[in-house]
């Protein structure tokens, strides 16, 4: 139980570092650490499939994509122009208001039940695969079309137009 609170503290700590780090490269590295703590959360809930997918897709694919983009456009030399303090304070107050609203709504709940895993193989690949390929077969196929169209769109957007360039 104390493991959860320690990992939760690390998640919040690293995600604050993500948005406050000066250099974008440091931001991405802190984001990788944040996602690693999320993977540990999934393991603690015995969602093994999601833990592996989070590890491979987020930390392996998406963040490497971020790092490559950053390397291609080479932002390291110039620091990001700062926003004025007024905008920063306004943004902070906006986010804090959002948080306070959710916490206040949470207070309206009575004492919550603990999260107990009744079925130990709930998040295993075998169980999830059965659900995915029975009830959610059509959304699964549609998401493959989505990934294909995203790939085509990304290639189309990122290549130079030979007529104008």
């Amino acid at each position: 139980m104390s493991t959860f609170y320690f990992i939760a503290f690390l998640s919040i700590f690293f995600s604050i570092l993500v948005i406050t780090a000066k250099s974008p490269v440091h931001s991405i590295l802190y984001l990788i650490l944040t996602f690693f703590t999320f993977t540990i959360h999934y393991i603690l809930m015995n969602a093994q499939f999601l833990a592996v997918v989070n590890f491979i897709v987020y930390m392996g694919a998406i963040l490497v994509l971020f790092l490559y983009t950053l390397m291609l456009i080479n932002l390291n030399k110039e620091s990001e122009p700062r926003k004025s303090n007024l905008v920063k304070i306004a943004g902070f107050i906006g986010g804090a208001c959002f948080l306070i609203t959710i916490v206040a709504a949470l207070k309206a709940f009575t004492v919550s039940q603990p999260v107990v895993l009744n079925n130990p193989n709930l998040g295993l690949v075998k169980n999830l695969g059965k659900i995915l390929f029975n009830e959610f077969l059509l959304p699964f196929e549609v998401s493959s079309v989505l990934l294909l169209s995203a790939m085509v769109g990304a290639v189309l957007l990122a290549t130079k137009d030979p007529k104008t360039a």
Partner: peptide
């Protein structure tokens, strides 16, 4: 590992 998780409130 899953035993350690049990008891964290929702």
């Amino acid at each position: 590992l899953t035993k350690t998780m049990q008891g964290v409130p929702l």
